[in-house]
Design a protein around this nucleic acid. Structure first.
Lengths: 217, 217, 217, 217
DNA sequence: GATGAATGAGGCTTCATTCAT
DNA sequence: AATGAATGAAGCCTCATTCAT
């Protein structure tokens, strides 16, 4: 999986489940006990499937084969589980951004970015829906306010860095439009239309940015 | 307010609060009792502010100055309040779509549509957030599945009707892209960025569609 | 239907539904409005089917096609409906007892009584079950305490009058045994055994009392 | 207390309160927590006194000095408390039946059975009334349908085993009559007559079965 | 006679969290 | 690290009853 594999506001770097299993072992979650790990994994799945408010601690206990006491040994509260899940992803996003330095032609960077995002979108519907759900549910949104903002600026800067190479003057506007298109498509694909022509839309988007011409007036 | 004043998936025709008050009197909700009316109004507000799951029936009772018993006299359940709110808006959307027949040049129709939507977006943030919240919260999404789909196709057809006049061959794709842009901007404005340059983005979008050139290969 | 058609503690004189319809018109319920009548009828049915506590006033309203206000116009409370139902039956029992004067041979009176009771038992299961339900549910039992006692002594005296003609000395004991047998069979038939050989048991009982010999020591 | 100390449909093997306290410790309920135990005990008492529908969970909590949450930690629902109470008694009945093997003369077995039942009847009025109340209340009857049937056949088989030794040909009929007499007397004693001559009736019954003569035509 | 809006107490159940072991 | 008993607040909903019309 590419290092640039996430850049969206509602878009994230990688399969969330992976985060709490094999791939994270070694740099962030290395000291995390197996059981704590399992709780995060199951909680992520349940929050995505049922929503945060509709997932009870007992639900998590049962599915994770863990006692209530143990969960409260590892986590201060239900909220803190959510925060930890989000933080894990955010941290990874930061790390990956730091690591990603491409010397490619900017338009190709855009194309590659688009392809990565669309690929994730298809493979991790549930996790993207979790992100949406959390961002639009006032209660959870409040809890994760800062992280949401942090991620947004992270993404914006990533994109703007690319557009700066295309048109310094319009890079802000271009970034906003680009992110809006990506997010709008994601939203429509995930939650609005029943049979969304994701491939067709993707081709259109790639063509648009591959041959982008800026009128610098 | 123009008759075409809403066409979005996460976009709706008019201020929701209005629906349950003055403007509906006379054609749809004419027989609705004052108290029932009040409950719908307050429930809409609270659902938007706190989310459906975090709004209790007692919250609604208190703010609406109504007894618990009365709510259950008028509504079968908490869910049914949500459904009634949504149905009210959906019905109005249908009605308005039926009524709207523009003979204008298609590109101008698009421009007008964009302006209407952006105007609403600025004036009804809470209600748009309610829509998003409901669509991404698995529990509420399930409850309103059919209406969400109905609205999506309603909007799509409206937009496609316009693009059909521009390019029959590409009208599907153009419609999907147009809606994605609108929804993406709404999403970013409402829930992602702290200080979103809505006016700048709006100008860009208007320019794009005002001078739209289609390459019909 | 014979005049002696009920003598049981858990046994009553006649089909309860009849009481609130045609047959009563003319002597007890003559002034009862149709709607009140209907309420009593439906309430009896619902109490029998679901129990007193599990039948709500709204249930009765709906099934009787009557408004809540009207029920409270005719009846002081839910309890008072139950009381009125019971009183109707009790009054009829009293009236019938007064009217029944048989000059038959006492053993034949017993046989006739047995046959009447068994016949009712088969035709009015629901109503007998209502009686049982009410007598053993502490809350309803309390409400109808006096009537239950009144009915018991009414029945006992009826039976004892017959046994007095057979053996003055043992008539009390014989009456208690007779009533116990009748009630026990009813109970077993109505509520204990799945496939009760009612006919076989009835024949046995009839034979026992037809050829009754008393050892008057 | 004899091992055969109960065989009735509305009759059970032993003091219910005992079941949840001292006597069970050691073989069935040994692992049951004190609090759960207390809840069953109190619930039994309250259901008997006020009926199932008229006993609220709060009533039970208060009398058992236990929190609402704890009850739901131990029991799935209010219904499940009732089921557990009933199951406890049913299991004991099964166990005792298995254990009881009498080599006595059959008529003496009947006499002994009668004496045991009458003794219980006098000492456990409340519990017998609970059984009746549950069997005749449609809602609770439904919940315990299977157990009621199981108990009925258990009792019937016990009694029939005895009568088989007296008259194979008539053992079915004799069993039904015997059970009806027992149940009828119980019913009359518990719920119909104010001052029931239980001793007199008991003597009569004992005499009847001690000197039973069967006409085997 | 008749309606149904309105009330408020109370019922069952769920849940996050704490704590002794 | 791990368990699960225990708590109490809060949630949704039902219900008998009253009252203005």
């Amino acid at each position: 999986m590419s290092k640039k594999d996430s850049h969206g506001s509602i878009i994230s770097y990688s399969k969330i489940i992976d985060i709490f299993t094999d791939r994270m072992v070694g740099f962030v979650l290395i000291s995390m006990s197996d059981k704590k790990n399992k709780v995060l994994q199951i909680a992520t799945k349940l929050f995505a499937e049922k929503g945060f408010e509709n997932t009870s601690m007992v639900n998590i206990c049962h599915e994770a084969n863990v006692s209530k006491g143990l969960i409260y040994h590892h986590f201060k509260s239900k909220e803190s589980i959510l925060i930890e899940i989000f933080t894990g992803v955010t941290n990874q996003m930061i790390e990956m951004k730091t690591a990603s330095k491409s010397s490619q032609e900017p338009k190709l960077q855009l194309v590659q970015l688009i392809e990565t995002i669309f690929s994730q979108l298809e493979h991790d519907k549930a996790f993207f829906q979790l992100n949406l759900n959390i961002m639009f549910q006032p209660s959870t949104r409040q809890i994760l306010k800062e992280q949401i903002e942090q991620r947004a600026s992270l993404l914006f800067n990533s994109v703007k860095n690319i557009f700066d190479q295309i048109s310094l003057k319009k890079s802000d506007l271009l970034s906003y439009m680009f992110i809006a298109e990506i997010d709008g498509i994601s939203l429509n694909y995930l939650s609005i239309f029943n049979e969304y022509p994701l491939d067709m839309v993707k081709e259109e988007l790639i063509n648009k940015y591959k041959y982008l011409r800026i009128n610098n007036d």
